[in-house]
């Protein structure tokens, strides 16, 4: 039966069982959510006004940045059209889900969210927060879904170093603030502070979203690969709201034809030059 599950035949059973345990999860979540409800409904008028003003300024700033982004996006598309590149920037449908405050196995980095297949979630769907990529869904029930975070020891995400365009894989380590990048050659150009963005290879995660920031690089000339560690950008242990992303409406596999579908081998190319760097 355990083997059976590896071939994903038991997903429907798990979905049914998740309905059975949902009341328990709801019950455990109840104190937290009522506490939040009380806090919101009992906060004073002045607090709300202050918060409102703060949000207004923030929105203004964000809107200004968005204008610049739109101009850049248009320019980028124009340049790519000149190069005949088949790159697509689509508006991706999004949905905000909330975490259920339940504890899972302490040795797995998994979270439970309060949306399920009734909201058209699907297995393997990427999960983001305001800072970066958090993880992907692994089990979807009708009312709730389980997501695996990028720091789970059995998780790997294809990434790209934003500065140089070097592609590699970031593995989870089991500690909430560390990712491992084991496939970076010693002569590769990696520095502390480099931003890792998702590369979109593998077709699971949307390309171009921030994933992590390099915090330590250890280049030992005796070894083939350098030891690189990164810290996830997303607030994996602090966010309460998460963002679920769907692929853009025109679902052409934009990144698939570029490389054969084995992102594990994509680490071997050295610096592809500075052409992709801004």
């Amino acid at each position: 039966m355990t083997i059976d599950h590896r071939q994903h035949h038991l997903n429907s059973v798990r979905a049914a069982l998740s309905v059975a345990v949902y009341p328990l999860q709801w019950l455990v979540n109840l104190p937290g959510s009522t506490g939040q409800w009380f806090r919101e409904s009992l906060s004073t008028r002045r607090d709300l006004q202050e918060e409102n003003a703060g949000l207004r300024t923030q929105q203004l700033v964000l809107n200004t940045q968005l204008q610049k982004l739109e101009a850049l996006e248009a320019e980028n598309m124009r340049l790519r059209a000149l190069l005949d590149s088949s790159f697509q920037v689509g508006k991706r449908p999004m949905l905000i889900a909330e975490l259920l405050s339940v504890d899972m196995d302490p040795y797995r980095h998994q979270i439970e969210i309060n949306k399920g297949s009734l909201d058209r979630l699907y297995e393997g769907q990427p999960l983001l927060d305001s800072q970066g990529i958090m993880g992907q869904l692994i089990h979807v029930g009708p009312f709730s879904a389980t997501a695996m975070l990028i720091t789970d020891p059995s998780h790997a995400i294809p990434v790209q170093i934003n500065r140089t365009g070097l592609r590699t894989i970031a593995l989870g380590t089991g500690s909430i603030d560390r990712l491992d990048l084991p496939h970076i050659p010693t002569n590769a150009d990696v520095r502390v502070g480099d931003l890792l963005v998702s590369s979109g290879l593998g077709g699971r995660f949307p390309p171009g979203y921030p994933v992590a920031e390099v915090v330590s690089v250890e280049q030992d000339p005796g070894n083939t690969f350098s030891t690189v560690e990164a810290r996830p950008r997303a607030n994996l242990d602090r966010s309460r709201e998460v963002l679920l992303v769907w692929p853009p409406a025109i679902t052409t596999p934009a990144s698939a034809p570029a490389t054969p579908s084995s992102p594990a081998t994509a680490d071997s190319d050295n610096k592809p030059g500075g052409d992709t760097a801004p």
Binding site: M1, H5, V13, R14, L17, V21, D105, E112
Partner: peptide
């Protein structure tokens, strides 16, 4: 055990 597996997100049957 099955319910616990679902709650914990572990392999079903473990």
């Amino acid at each position: 055990g099955l319910l616990l597996d679902t709650l914990n997100g572990t392999l079903l049957g473990e």
